[in-house]
Design a protein around this nucleic acid. Sequence first.
DNA 1: TTGAGTATATTGTAATGCAAGGTAGTGATG
DNA 2: CATCACTACCTTGCATTACAATATACTCAA
Lengths: 123, 123
Amino acid sequence: MIPSQMLKGILQGSILAIISQKETYGYEISQALARYGFGTISEGTIYPLLLRLEKGGLIVARFLDTGSGPKRKYYTLTPAGQEELTQFQISYREMTAAVDSLPGFGKEESHEERDQTAPEGEQ
Amino acid sequence: MIPSQMLKGILQGSILAIISQKETYGYEISQALARYGFGTISEGTIYPLLLRLEKGGLIVARFLDTGSGPKRKYYTLTPAGQEELTQFQISYREMTAAVDSLPGFGKEESHEERDQTAPEGEQ
DNA sequence: TTGAGTATATTGTAATGCAAGGTAGTGATG
DNA sequence: CATCACTACCTTGCATTACAATATACTCAA
């Protein structure tokens, strides 16, 4: 399970990426996230996030009848949303590059300036 | 610049990884983070985090004189900290696997069940 | 009529990055 | 000697956000 704190800032961009693929709605997004390996993301997380994105002008919505069941609120990216998605991808790569360069993450590169001023026992 | 929300849950594990390499202190950690590509992480972020980790029993500290300048508080991982670091690495890989499988991240695998129930214009 | 599944929304809580502020020691510059 | 820069630590308060809990409402099957 991915801890909630690790999801902060990741979920928003991930949902933008999902919406960018095809017009979709909250319930379907939650299923897509589970399918992509994010685990079960609470609806109490997804709907407020979608409202935030809508208020922020990153996505726009329209209600569509389904013939059966409640109406669905379909979302589409705005140009600002597209831009935000691109920025997210850049930031994400920057973040993973930093973490992956950390010792013990199997992707060490450079950074061999291990200084020898190791502290001696003292009190 | 990595957005602050994206750092949540990442910073703690990253700092544990840095401490696991060698006994070190707050100021040096902030420089190491910058060197690894995290950008300038505020001291208002690092010191509270170190105190949290110490109170949580993940790290232990001892003060050492430096001969010149203020005393340094050197930190070491506890067994619980080691375990937490291992768990962080697992969660991190799980998270990046999910994000990387998202459309538009250059690492698409499987997930070709794109259903054809595309909504037709309606109102 | 009871339940499960689909679908959206709101309220309140907890976690955490960080700006802003403070303390203190050392050494160089004027 | 006064000032500044750098090292090094710490605290307070704010903003953001994932999520549990809760609510509404429609459809369909048992």
